[in-house]
C-alpha cells in the first residue's frame, strides 16, 4: 500500500494545512475581535488592550505567511 501512498507526507500535509490554514485564519479573526474591542461603535468604553491583541495576532499571521513562503521556496 505504501508504494502507492506516501503516508508520511500525507499526514504532514494535513497537519500543516490545518495548523496554517485553519489556525492562522482563526488567529486573524481573533485579531479582528481585538480591533473591534478597542474601538467600540459609540466611542465609549474602549479597551486599549484590544489593539495589543490585534497587533500580536496580525504579526503572527504575517510571520506565518512569510514562513510558509520561505519553506515552500527553500525545499
Amino acid at each position: 500500500m505504501s508504494q502507492y501512498i506516501d503516508v508520511d507526507a500525507l499526514w504532514k500535509v494535513l497537519v500543516a494545512g490545518l495548523v496554517a490554514g485553519a489556525g492562522l485564519v482563526a488567529l486573524y479573526a481573533l485579531g479582528l475581535v481585538g480591533l473591534a474591542a478597542a474601538r467600540t461603535q459609540d466611542g465609549t468604553a474602549a479597551r486599549p488592550a484590544g489593539v495589543v491583541v490585534a497587533a500580536v495576532c496580525f504579526a503572527l499571521v504575517l510571520a506565518g505567511a512569510l514562513l510558509g513562503l520561505y519553506v515552500m521556496l527553500a525545499k
Binding site: D6, A9, L10, K12, V13, A16, G17, V19, A20, G21, A22, L24, V25, Y28, A29, A65, G68, L69, V71, M72, K75
Partner: peptide, 25 residues
C-alpha cells in the same frame, strides 16, 4: 467575505505544505 478569506487561507496553506513535503497536489 469571511468564507472567501478562509478558503484562500486554506488553499495557500495546503499548497505550501504539499509543495514542501513533496506531495504533488
Amino acid at each position: 467575505t469571511p468564507q472567501g478569506f478562509a478558503a484562500e487561507g486554506s488553499s495557500a496553506a495546503v499548497i505550501f505544505a504539499a509543495s514542501h513535503f513533496g506531495l504533488p497536489l
